[in-house]
Design a protein around this nucleic acid. Sequence first.
DNA 1: AATAACTGTAACAACAATTATTACAATTAA
DNA 2: TTAATTGTAATAATTGTTGTTACAGTTATT
Lengths: 136, 136
Amino acid sequence: MNNTRFATVVHVLAILADNDGEWLSSDWIANSININPVMVRKELGTLQQRGLVITRKGKEGGSRLQKSSTEISLADIYLLVKNTEVLGKKNLNTNPQCPIGKQINKALDGLFAKTDELMLAYLQSITLEKFVKQFR
Amino acid sequence: MNNTRFATVVHVLAILADNDGEWLSSDWIANSININPVMVRKELGTLQQRGLVITRKGKEGGSRLQKSSTEISLADIYLLVKNTEVLGKKNLNTNPQCPIGKQINKALDGLFAKTDELMLAYLQSITLEKFVKQFR
DNA sequence: AATAACTGTAACAACAATTATTACAATTAA
DNA sequence: TTAATTGTAATAATTGTTGTTACAGTTATT
């Protein structure tokens, strides 16, 4: 991952957790992260799909957590933003005439699955609540 | 990490381990990965700096392992290619006027350090030899 | 009913990272 | 001397990421 999406989504959820029950606008949230509100709305869209937040449109609209922060883990966030494996991408088109070229991607798949599993298990153990506690 | 460098370097080393003692040219190696030989030479350059391979210039030149494949671990490779944290980049410029914005990066640093540690510990346990065994 | 404050999303622009390629000087074995 | 190689600079091509503008649709408030 070479992007800021994990950091952004954690930030968004931390703010929502810190203001539990209130409807916060994308503008307000974006102001804390210092990014464009449209980026925030995009992430909130995915968070909604996954049932982590609810959003209300129109005046006085905004978003808030749909689950308790004890029921959200960093693994949920990771799964939401993950686009490549932890160790990066494979070389597709390796040469099948070479024994290594032929088999390496199967071996990498196995490795990548393990590292992913490891990461998920750890992130699952950290709830949003636990993470946000650090800010108090 | 959003690139193929880990996969590439693993591939390069797997080939060298599989042809232990022989001097393999960057062209030969590139042919198995199906990438440009210059890319291979670049990675070999770093591998040399770290003392993992030796390279000989000129006709009949090429590269081979400098250490036994039992003394090289996937963690060595990971450290070589790592450019961002496992969970991505932070948002710099968060708003210091917001309590979350002010403190989040410190919290993320802690988290990123843990995930990195976890990953390294696992990768250290896998030697090149062990990895290459899968191809036999 | 009108207004103001929102969300959702498309379209696109700007920027950054990654990968590929060309070219050639320097090195070395035969 | 020649042929095969590395090392590396320069740059092009491609892909990924982030930012921005614009505006239709929604909703609370008056």
